[in-house]
Design a protein around this nucleic acid. Structure first.
Length: 285
DNA sequence: AATCCTCACAACCGCCGGTCA
DNA sequence: ATGACCGGCGGTTGTGAGGAT
């Protein structure tokens, strides 16, 4: 026994809404509201549509406060960061972006952002403290990681499945990190994550980046103080919280950040949660 | 010009949780 | 306590436009 359907599927119109239907729905809602019942609404409004369909059309398209048009880089960063924190809770993510609907955000993620980010080939799994074994490479954790496209840069054609070690056994210090991570306050959207930008440029890798950090990752917030020349070349690593990141340059060429091996070298001073810190290799996407 | 392919986005489907009789 | 109903949500599919061949 399934649930009773919300409407008679044989007698309702489906598919794209016509301008006339839009006008009828909008007119009715503006003068009467929903009346607390979407199921009865189409009949009252003279529409041969399912109530759910009316609700969706209104919420996702007809509502006056809907923002149409392209997503901004700021919105990109918000989506990526919140997705990193909470996963596919699109309605919650959309609630942080006035004028955007959960459907908008979901579609945008699925059609654009995910492709740009999924160099990882899958969502990065969180690692419990139990799974963290200092200095032990844990291939299994990242067995699913792979590039989704051949790298543009021949230098990265030898991509190997990612491996991972924690940094929990390394000493604190600055010497391993000779790249500048300039913190851009404009990208600080939430206490729960930070934006790093303006890595500077090498001849091959010019980009700024927004790195999503979990709450614990706030411990790396002073990474901007890392001494360096502002350049990140193809062999460079940088330290970030567990998660994944989005990087893009001024031409909106996206890079993925693949968490990979760690080093016995030091992490920046101020990184207090070493168990959460890994290194990421950056790949062209 | 015709066909195929890709992409973006709108729309649908089915499940879940809250509410209420 | 139970079941029906409804709204909300996330996953998935459908559709049309535009580009490539």
């Amino acid at each position: 026994m399934g649930r009773t359907p919300c409407c008679d599927k044989d007698n309702v119109k489906r598919g794209p809404w016509s301008p006339e239907e839009d006008a009828a729905l909008k007119s009715y809602l503006e003068s009467h509201g929903t009346g607390g019942n979407w199921i009865l609404l189409p009949k009252k409004a003279g529409l041969r549509r399912c109530g759910k369909s009316c609700r969706l059309r209104w919420l996702n398209y007809l509502r006056p406060d809907i923002k149409h048009g392209s997503f901004t880089e700021e919105e990109d960063s918000i989506i990526c960061s919140l997705y990193n924190q909470m996963g596919s809770r699109w309605s919650v993510i959309a609630s942080h972006m006035p004028g955007r609907t959960d459907n908008d955000v979901k579609n945008y993620w699925n059609t654009k952002l995910k492709k740009k980010l999924l160099v990882l080939g899958g969502k990065v799994k969180n690692i419990s403290s139990k799974e963290r074994e200092p200095t032990i490479t844990n291939n299994a954790l990242f067995s699913g990681i792979r590039k989704t496209e051949e790298p543009q840069d021949p230098a990265f054609s030898t991509f190997q499945p990612a491996t991972l070690q924690t940094l929990s056994d390394v000493n604190s210090g600055l010497n391993a990190y000779n790249q500048t991570l300039s913190l851009n306050p404009d990208q600080l959207y939430s206490p729960k994550f930070l934006g790093f930008s303006n890595f500077g440029a090498s001849s091959r890798r010019s980009f700024s980046t927004t790195v999503s950090l979990s709450q614990e990752g706030s411990s790396v917030s002073d990474s901007s103080s890392i001494a360096g020349n502002g350049y990140l070349d193809q062999d460079s690593w940088f330290c970030m919280d567990y998660g994944y990141g989005l990087a893009y340059d001024n031409n909106v060429n996206y890079y993925g950040m693949c968490f990979e091996k760690t080093t016995s070298e030091a992490v920046p001073s101020g990184c207090t949660d070493l168990g959460e810190l890994f290194q990421a290799e950056i790949y062209n996407y």
